[in-house]
């Protein structure tokens, strides 16, 4: 009688490279790697990995091209700007600025929006109407105009940028959370919690909030990219962070009039913004697909 022995392995082992590629497909390795290189490592370790002081330049070395161009030196891999500051160092410190601005803005905006959205969806009625009209108002504000007005009134600073961003960001969280709350509060476990005697605050914090966290994480990830773009745009227009700060948007603005003679001054920060935002969007898409398939529209 023939016996069939179960083989533990397929008759050939897939090449290592193929196996590695499968891992790459399963996890968002590329966006995560890109983010680590472009944003997280530079931001956390800026003073350690940056070769030079981002604010201190030497006019003798101004406008040096990148290393592979004629006239470039190995001392300044990506060249220098018109004040002789090392572009690579400024990019690295700029990552820190971008990350700080976007995390603070998203955190503050997210908390405000989530709180208001929970109240709006849970209590309904007049509270809902009031908060949702505020959301509509916030979403209809012209970004740039608001930023310019605020900067004109208070002056450019880290705080002003954060305020502008929070005013623009909270509404999306409020809307998302309200929508989810509306559907969750009809479910029986909310009725059970009320029968058990849980207070409104407890129901919102213990029952509804944990069920919207997934969506919030997705939205927050997708918004980091948006915030970095926005912050760069504000800085470019002079309505963002004040001048010597090594912000990516400011660096592009500085290189604008030199674009023909010294393209590298604005090109590298531009590339950094593009790749970071791209990576964040890819990561956000991946998270959305894996955490919550319902959220195709965010």
């Amino acid at each position: 009688m023939a016996t069939v022995t179960a083989r533990a392995l397929p008759w050939y082992a897939r090449p290592r490279v193929v196996q590695a590629m499968r891992q790459v497909k399963r996890y968002p390795v590329i966006p995560l790697g890109l983010l680590m290189i472009l944003l997280v490592i530079p931001a956390v370790l800026a003073p350690l990995v940056a070769p030079y002081d981002p604010l201190q330049g030497s006019l003798a070395k101004r406008l040096k091209p990148p290393v592979w161009q004629q006239g470039g030196t190995i001392d300044h891999l990506l060249g220098t700007d018109k004040l002789g500051r090392d572009i690579l160092s400024r990019l690295i410190h700029g990552a820190r600025v971008s990350l700080a601005v976007s995390l603070v803005a998203i955190f503050v905006g997210g908390i405000a929006g989530t709180g208001l959205g929970l109240m709006s969806g849970y209590f309904g009625g007049k509270t809902d109407t009031l908060i949702m009209r505020l959301v509509d108002l916030s979403l209809s504000l012209p970004t740039i105009l608001l930023a310019l007005v605020l900067v004109a009134a208070v002056g450019p600073s880290f705080g002003t940028v954060i305020i502008v961003l929070v005013v623009l960001l909270w509404a999306r969280y409020a809307r998302l959370v309200r929508g989810e709350t509306l559907s969750i509060k009809e479910r029986d476990f909310i009725a059970r919690a009320r029968v058990a005697g849980a207070s409104h605050t407890r129901i919102m914090a213990r029952y509804i909030f944990p069920n919207v966290v997934n969506s919030l994480v997705v939205l927050a990830t997708l918004q980091v990219g948006y915030v970095i773009l926005l912050e760069s745009a504000l800085s470019f227009l002079g309505a963002g962070l004040p001048r010597p700060t090594p912000a990516w948007g400011l660096m592009i603005a500085d290189g604008r009039e030199l674009i023909v003679t010294a393209w590298w001054v604005s090109m590298f920060p531009g590339l950094a913004i593009m790749l970071t935002v791209l990576a964040l969007n890819l990561l956000g898409d991946w998270l959305r697909d894996h955490l919550d398939p319902k959220l195709r529209h965010v």
Binding site: R187, D188, R192, V195, A198, R202, R206, Y207, N211
Partner: peptide, 30 residues
């Protein structure tokens, strides 16, 4: 002293709470 059991056991238990927390809720709250 008054409690309830609802129709749909798929929607009457919060998916983000452990069984212990779900069962203990009336005790903890009151």
């Amino acid at each position: 002293i008054v409690q309830a059991v609802f129709q749909d056991p798929w929607s009457s238990l919060s998916p983000r709470m452990r069984v212990r927390e779900i069962v203990a809720e009336p005790l903890v709250v009151n």
